[in-house]
Computed example of a mutant assay.
Amino acid sequence: MRVLITGSAGFIGYHLGRHLLAEGHAVIGLDGFSDYYDVGLKRARHAELATHPAFEPVEGRLESPGLLRDLLAQARPDIVVHLAAQAGVRYSLENPQAYADSNLIGSFNLLEAVRAHPVRHLLLASTSSAYGGNTTLPFRETDRAVSPLTFYAASKLAMEAMAHSYSHLFAIPTTAFRFFTVYGPWGRPDMALFLFTRKILAGEPIEVFAGGAAERDFTYIDDLVDAIRRLADVPPPSPGGGGPVGAFDTLSTSAPYRLVNIGGGRPVRLDAMIDALERALGARAERILKPLPPGDVARTEASTALLQALVGRVPETPIEVGIPAFVAWYRRYYGV
């Protein structure tokens, strides 16, 4: 296949690109190298991918008029995986414009490009934050998601809705997936695991929200990439072309569109994650307890029934395996 990945220098885009290249596919990787976090880390990821002859790097931003349409016209991908976005829950309180530009305008530009140059399957990255104020656990894809707590979550919900409309109007097979706290080697420096590792090694205290009682459905990067790759082979059928796989399916009745959680359904307390990190580092953390910030939720937990039915497996790597793997990469990359 020829696969276009937007956000290919990002954490997930890099790992997905590496996985696809190892399978023998051609990968076109688009990234704008925004300075939201260390651009050097992003360029190092892209440099790793560029060692493969089947990788074609493209630098540009989603918001640039005509860029995506021209890229699809030239590259003619079979599949598009849209991972590029302005990420981060808390940063959306400081700079909401970045989310409007990337997540709304950028995603619209991609939909228009796919409308002009159809693909076999369009896959879009959303977020568990879309469940917002939903207090029913686990989070099921069939739950109404109408109470986003941050503009980041609202922008992702809007992207899902826009994608459904394009799927309906132009028969674009589309799968949107909601990620649950992804972590692992080459991770994002703004995420808790990365921040805690840096501070513990530097002898600095860490801020622990909700007294360590907050729970997250941690998803190891290799499990996530495996799920995306498997979902790529399962485009939603057009209305009348196939029925739902169960009562839990989100297959649209008016479009070849589906929404899928990617998470393991096994929440872990934040203090347990820190305990595992301390063991992997061989160092103790000084913990400063803080209340839960605005826009954060106390617990996330993915319903896994739909993912299991579609691809036959769900994320299962425990933090006792995933966190040491992250620490080993961090020590190699930063020489500490």
Rank of each mutant, 00 (worst) to 15 (best):
residue 2 R to I: 08
residue 3 V to G: 06
residue 4 L to P: 06
residue 17 G to R: 07
residue 22 A to W: 09
residue 24 G to N: 07
residue 39 V to W: 03
residue 40 G to N: 11
residue 52 H to E: 09
residue 67 L to F: 00
residue 71 L to K: 01
residue 76 R to W: 02
residue 79 I to A: 06
residue 81 V to A: 10
residue 88 G to K: 07
residue 96 P to S: 02
residue 96 P to D: 02
residue 99 Y to I: 09
residue 103 N to H: 05
residue 104 L to F: 05
residue 105 I to K: 10
residue 115 R to D: 02
residue 123 L to Q: 08
residue 128 S to Y: 13
residue 132 G to N: 01
residue 135 T to A: 15
residue 137 L to M: 13
residue 139 F to I: 04
residue 151 F to Y: 10
residue 156 K to P: 04
residue 156 K to T: 04
residue 158 A to W: 05
residue 163 A to I: 00
residue 167 S to P: 12
residue 168 H to G: 15
residue 169 L to T: 12
residue 169 L to R: 15
residue 170 F to N: 06
residue 179 F to M: 13
residue 181 T to K: 05
residue 182 V to D: 05
residue 183 Y to M: 07
residue 187 G to A: 11
residue 200 I to W: 04
residue 205 P to M: 00
residue 207 E to C: 10
residue 211 G to D: 03
residue 217 D to R: 12
residue 223 D to K: 04
residue 228 I to Y: 03
residue 238 S to M: 13
residue 240 G to I: 05
residue 241 G to E: 12
residue 246 G to R: 02
residue 246 G to D: 12
residue 255 A to C: 14
residue 256 P to S: 11
residue 257 Y to R: 04
residue 257 Y to A: 06
residue 260 V to F: 08
residue 263 G to I: 03
residue 264 G to D: 08
residue 269 R to H: 02
residue 273 M to W: 10
residue 291 P to A: 11
residue 292 L to R: 08
residue 292 L to W: 07
residue 294 P to C: 12
residue 296 D to M: 14
residue 296 D to R: 15
residue 302 A to R: 07
residue 306 L to Y: 01
residue 308 Q to N: 11
residue 309 A to L: 06
residue 312 G to T: 09
residue 317 T to H: 05
residue 323 I to V: 15
residue 327 V to H: 14
residue 327 V to G: 14
residue 328 A to Y: 13
residue 329 W to V: 13
residue 329 W to R: 08
residue 331 R to E: 08
residue 335 G to S: 12
